[in-house]
């Protein structure tokens, strides 16, 4: 088991290295010179040279890659070309928006999906089940950014209850900051909730059919109790697994939803860095996302290994 985990960690590191190389190469061959973008339409060639020197862009490719990698390994993510501040700080500032948004969205989606899925499973093949099935299908089908637009249309443009976007910052207090995240979190949560409802439903049904639940039921445990005491806790495992695997989609959704609601999050930072060719920021952000996804998958794998010994041979 330990050997297997070590092997997994090694492969995780290798994957991350490969990802970093790919990101670096792609960003390097992108058309567009960061110096030319920063200096505008009237820049002279020698100014461009001077700025490239200052940014270290005159160094050979391999050296720049190694310098970046070495920095990342020691926690120094470099300095943003455009802002002139350390990238780590920039990412931390943006993460203070994206992370709460993602957590909020996950909580919401679990809050919607769990009851819906359990009820669906309990009333299996009944009208409630079909209604819930249709609802979850619809949740999956709607693009999160469209839900965002509709929420803005209803709650800000028509009703005027909330601002249509923007983020007051945490220094403005917890309530206004969380308030600004409500609509985006809903937009982000709905598609996830659709997927999770279906997972919960099938997981609960599966557990209810397992021997230990049947035995408990045969011994006189009421169905409802069996469901909440045995089925739901056990069904949480696949739900959490899917949450981990859906993380990629949550991030993708966050980039779009941040855009609809003008949230100064990581996704917007990436878009902005890409358009300004703030290459170092873009590299760091993409690597950060990739690392998150890889680690998330690793944790999911680990939990699988821990839960299901049969899989250990398949790995």
């Amino acid at each position: 088991m330990t050997g297997l985990i070590l092997q997994r960690i090694l492969s995780l590191v290798l994957t991350l290295l490969a990802v970093s190389a790919v990101i670096f190469l792609v960003m390097d061959v992108l058309p567009g010179d960061p110096a030319a973008i920063m200096l505008g339409t009237s820049a002279t060639p020698e100014t461009l040279e001077a700025l490239r020197r200052e940014l270290g862009l005159d160094q050979p490719l391999v050296l720049r890659y190694l310098a970046w990698l070495g920095g990342v390994a020691t926690g120094d993510l470099g300095t943003s070309y455009t802002y002139g501040v350390p990238v780590a700080g920039l990412i931390a500032e943006r993460l203070a928006v994206t992370l709460p948004l993602a957590v909020f969205a996950i909580l919401l989606s679990v809050g919607i999906a769990l009851p819906l899925g359990v009820v669906s499973a309990a009333r299996r093949n009944g009208p409630v089940d079909y209604a819930a099935g249709l609802l979850s299908q619809m949740f999956i089908a709607v693009p999160g950014f469209w839900v965002g637009l509709l929420l803005v249309l209803v709650f800000s443009v028509s009703l005027g209850w909330v601002p249509s976007g923007g983020f007051p910052g945490w220094q403005a207090g917890l309530a206004p900051a969380l308030g600004a995240l409500v609509l985006p979190a809903i937009a982000l949560a709905l598609p996830q909730a659709g997927v999770l409802t279906r997972v919960t439903r099938s997981a609960v049904i599966e557990v209810m059919n397992e021997d230990f639940v049947r035995t408990a039921r045969a011994k006189g445990l009421p169905r409802r109790q069996a469901q909440w005491r045995h089925a739901v806790p056990n069904a949480l495992v696949p739900v959490v697994t899917i949450l981990g695997l859906q993380f990629t989609f949550l991030i993708a959704g966050a980039v779009l939803v941040e855009n609809v609601f003008n949230l100064p999050g990581l996704g917007r930072l990436a878009l902005q860095a890409l358009s300004q060719r703030d290459i170092i920021v873009m590299q760091d952000v993409v690597l950060f996302f990739a690392a998150l996804v890889i680690v998330m998958n690793f944790v999911v794998d680990l939990s699988y290994l821990a839960l299901d010994p049969r899989l250990r041979t398949r790995a």
Partner: peptide
């Protein structure tokens, strides 16, 4: 100067 990164050096 030679190290100027002024966009309007001209």
């Amino acid at each position: 100067g030679p190290d100027s990164t002024n966009g309007q050096k001209r």
